[in-house]
Design a protein around this nucleic acid. Structure first.
Length: 357
DNA sequence: AAGTCGGGGGG
DNA sequence: CCCCCAGACTT
């Protein structure tokens, strides 16, 4: 797609809008965040839905809104309670950024979610997609909300073969969507494209035969819908070996620690982990003393498994361990009863650990 | 433009 | 096993 090409030449915008919206009005999915247009609920749903499927989000959304029904409830909550409500959903910075932004809304905007593009952009965790989604879905403004669905649908409909992994391509689709979006019902238009992408114009084996906009689709006309969109990217997944210690003190309590406030799984809790790269197993107890300031005695390995993230894989060996001294010294470890573990937000990888206790 | 940041499900 | 998913943020 070169600059002088116009992907919308010979494209019947109003007919496309009509066919899409007519389909949507009778086929739209009944989703909990579609009960009303409460901007706060739209916001929460859009954050949860980033890189996350609808079926996964539904129970989290219902629980989250039950616990934090308004911006004021979320603003006043403990961060640990917010993370607990997010536990298992992944991308935990979404939860922390959401609460941070909600507090800004309470303090700076009187508790009303802004309906202004610039103000929304300034809120943590709200990027170009989420901004457009809130403006269109909650406030009915004709703003594009370009996500993976939108790029897939329009790459096929308009036969656009630019690499959707590139930032500049997203801008192209924002420009295109801004011209195609319905001004009569922008909220339904954006949601209709997403429903279409999720149920019909799917990544593999799209259901073109029942597609409401088939007659507008250039890729279908050419029989190349399976080859679009173009997406490059193949990142390596680095392996990271660790020993995880199920460490008990003299009272039988289990050691856990909170992860750093930055980086992977920030502020979540875990059983202590010892990185094994370049570290002999015999030195593990010494490493633990140097790092945590307490002497421990390891038992023999109870099990092992892998946990895969987007960009790395944890290879986890699980070891029982006992404390060899009173933990009076300064240490980052917290000793809790097994029954209390449920009060702390754990990543899924460490939830899996608990079966070995 | 490339890396970081989770976890699940589908083919 | 690979890919993808209602992306944002940092460098």
């Amino acid at each position: 797609m070169t600059v002088q090409d116009n992907p919308l030449q010979n494209f019947n915008i109003s007919a496309f809008q009509n066919d899409l919206l007519t389909w949507y009005y009778t086929n739209k999915r009944d989703l909990p965040w579609r009960q009303d247009q409460d901007p706060y609920k739209v916001w929460v749903s859009e954050i949860m839905l980033q890189q996350t499927k609808v079926d996964t989000v539904i129970p989290y959304f219902n629980n989250f809104i039950e616990k934090f029904p308004t911006v004021y409830d979320l603003a006043a909550a403990e961060e640990q309670a917010v993370l607990k409500a997010w536990e298992g959903l992944g991308y935990y910075s979404r939860a922390r950024n959401l609460q941070h932004a909600v507090r800004e809304v309470v303090e700076n905007y009187g508790g009303t979610v802004p309906d202004d593009s610039k103000q929304l952009e300034g809120l943590k965790g709200i990027g170009s997609y989420t901004k457009g989604a809130i403006l269109s879905i909650a406030y009915n403004q004709p703003e594009p909300a370009v996500d993976g669905n939108v790029m897939r649908v329009f790459s096929r409909v308009l036969n656009i073969d630019d690499d959707i992994a590139l930032p500049k391509t997203k801008k192209l689709f924002e420009s295109v969507t801004g011209e195609v979006i319905s001004h009569e019902d922008p909220s339904s238009f954006n949601q209709a494209i997403m429903d279409l992408g999720a149920t019909i114009c799917t990544p593999k084996s799209p259901a073109c035969l029942v597609c409401p906009v088939q007659e507008h689709c250039e890729a279908f006309k050419l029989g190349i819908e399976q080859q679009l969109p173009i997406k490059t990217k193949a990142k390596k997944n680095k392996k990271m070996p660790y020993a995880v210690l199920l460490l008990r003190n003299e009272e039988g309590k289990v050691a856990i620690e909170q992860r750093p406030e930055e980086g992977l799984l920030a502020n979540l809790w875990q059983f202590p982990m010892v990185p094994l790269q370049e570290l002999e197993m015999e030195l593990l107890e010494n490493w633990f003393y140097a790092h945590y300031g307490v002497r421990v005695k390891l038992g023999k390995k109870q099990g092992e498994f892998k946990h895969v993230f987007s960009h790395l894989t944890w290879e986890l060996g699980i070891y029982p361990a006992v404390l060899m001294e009173q933990a009076e010294q300064v240490t980052s470890l917290t000793f809790v009863d097994e029954a209390e573990l449920g009060n702390y937000p754990f990543p899924v990888s460490h939830q899996k650990m608990m079966q070995f206790l």
